[in-house]
Design a protein around this nucleic acid. Sequence first.
DNA 1: CCAGGAAAGCTAACAACATTAGCCTTGCGG
DNA 2: CCGCAAGGCTAATGTTGTTAGCTTTCCTGG
Lengths: 195, 195
Amino acid sequence: MPRAGLNTQIVVREAARLVDEVGYGQLTLAALANRLGVALPSLYKHVKGAEALAQQLSALATAEIADEMTTAAAGRSGEDALRAVAAAYRSYARRHPGRYPATQRVPDPADPAHLAAGERAVGVVYAILRGYGIEGDAAVDGVRMFRAAVHGFVSLEATGDFGLPRDVNRSFDRMIAALDVAFRSWPASAEPDAA
Amino acid sequence: MPRAGLNTQIVVREAARLVDEVGYGQLTLAALANRLGVALPSLYKHVKGAEALAQQLSALATAEIADEMTTAAAGRSGEDALRAVAAAYRSYARRHPGRYPATQRVPDPADPAHLAAGERAVGVVYAILRGYGIEGDAAVDGVRMFRAAVHGFVSLEATGDFGLPRDVNRSFDRMIAALDVAFRSWPASAEPDAA
DNA sequence: CCAGGAAAGCTAACAACATTAGCCTTGCGG
DNA sequence: CCGCAAGGCTAATGTTGTTAGCTTTCCTGG
């Protein structure tokens, strides 16, 4: 009986493919083992368990989306950058309907790569806001608004909660335009930057 | 052995209390039966299964949040209404960390009460936008932005993804203020209202 | 070239949960 | 009071996750 030749990376990557096909909620060690042509308990040689797998999947997806956001931001600024990064974010979520929800899991503090990926994604948004002249505490508020709006939009779109005929792309465009307007006249922080 | 005296409503209400305590992801028929002092299969006399229970829980939570949004909107308009409704929404999500995620499940078309509750919640936002003079297709965009921003904020807050020391209440205030500004100069729809 | 051991696979066994089938009893209505 | 529908139960089955412990592969050192 030849070996399957698995390792942690292969397992996690296959999990990513799996959830994109069947949905994040259907991530199951049984289905994954089946796909990899291996008995279920064999997976424990590569991942600590279902929980740990979800965490590593989150790290993978976070790194991917951070990369795409970074690429989208390259060479742009202002509304141009805002629009490109938001579009990249939404595009990722649509192309990877299973990976995207994995992203929402908060990083394990013991996984530096995961933490770094999260900070990289957020960093892209900070950089855009800096282009608007927004910094310090005010930037924290701005980043939170950006994340809330874009994540909220993408997540409502994914659950099919936008049931109306009205074009969703246009709604997204309008929202980005509104964010741009908001950032153009973003109030400075009330308190000094460094506490 | 006296009867437990359950019915569907009691079961769903207890499920709501349960998820607020242990988290939406931990909703389990086993735990629910245990709480109600009944054997697990007995629940099937009142709900069709785990899936159906989640759906009915969603209907309950949606009705509750719609009620609170409606109450918050009463007698207000403009930014005042915007702020009150958004605050009510966020407050519900914080007070009911288990019920809130249940809300995200899209209504079963065969459940008129659930559908009505969803429309009631959305209707509150439409009414506010009407106060800004926004109607028709433009209102669809506006409602989507409101929902995306507020849901996204609340959901990121709940997962603990706002890990920074910066005050979250202030960030929320700023976001609402930005929404108000956006709605004050919301572009009219490009197409005519009625297609 | 081969010995040996770590790593990677396996089977078996067990626990939690959901679901279905079928039984028993309560308690209400005629 | 009796009869039956409804609400409870136990038992059995299937799926998933997890742990334990065995076997085999394959690489590596001598």
